[in-house]
Amino acid sequence: MKNAKTVYPFTAIVGQEKMKKALILNVINPLLGGVLIKGEKGTAKSTAVRALAELLPERTQVEGCIFGCDPYDKSGMCITCLKKLEVNVKLNEVKGKMKVVDLPISATEDRVVGTLDIEYAIKKGEKKFEPGILAQANRNILYVDEVNLLDDHIVDVLLDSAAMGVNTIEREGVSFSHPARFILVGTMNPEEGDLRPQLLDRFCMVVNVTGERESEKRMEVIKNRLEFEKDSEAFAKKWKSKQQELRNRIKKAQELLHEVTYDDSILEMAARTSIEMEVDGHRADIAMIKTAMTIAAFNGRNKVLNSDLLEAAELVLPHRMRRTPFEEGIFNMSRVENVIGQTHQG
């Protein structure tokens, strides 16, 4: 986001460690599948997501491609780039930053999935696809504030593309499909209603945030905020080194991620945990391992420890515990701990 206004620095957010970590993990490993932040109003949910934009790393993308295709990943390329490759046209690379793309809850379906370009049609008499939010979101973060208030049919569309990383458009005379792999980040206030389980399951992790309880921390929150409002630029400067530090750590973790390995015992524990906790389907197992790998990378290790898996389980499992649509599953961390023996110290 290129706005002149200074964004509140991510590192200056007091507390909310779990939420911050979940967001960072998703930045390190975009394949994780997003995070849902649940919490009361005024708990820095949106601030954190917006602040994230500043930390996002650079990556290579095809020049001029609206979908920001990765020139080295044929499996996730848009049709134009693929065609170019087929006829051996060299794809020009540029460095680009990952973005936070907003999906407002008032968005209409045609803007979300894309639609017929009216102007072009009237001027030229030809049909052209006008890309929507999902096109922009490819390889970026798709942020939905108040995700539980999203219209049902928009949720369906999201489910569709989140599932396969492709947005297929068959509407208004346009037939088109393009890659739409995005990190889905949602925030919601549970008082306003629930999320459909199907969509809930698409989020790799869920974190609950609450306001800080200690008065000392609360004071720090106020102090930081006031300072920021008084002179945002000076405030940002003050946090600059911290921000850079975190940025470096993310970058290192990203490089390390490819080298992270895990033992068979880790795999077994993940599978056993899922069976023990009676989660639906297999998404939980896979998410647990991937998250654990990312945590290991973030901690500068190339090997997954039990403690990583345990931490991952806490992020990945609770929202998958429900047995019926609305029956609250009871998540018992000690049961997970039993399965994942803590032989290593966390």
Binding site: E109, V113, A121, G125, E126, K127, H153, D156, V157, D160, T168, I169, E170, R171, E172, G173, V174, S175, S177
Partner: peptide
């Protein structure tokens, strides 16, 4: 053949071809 949920009727059953009709 994928039928996405957001399909509109015209794309499902077919319709008049604007480009050809004009040209």
């Amino acid at each position: 053949i994928n039928l996405p949920l957001n399909t509109t009727e015209d794309r499902l059953i077919g319709t008049i071809d604007i480009e050809k009709t004009i040209t």
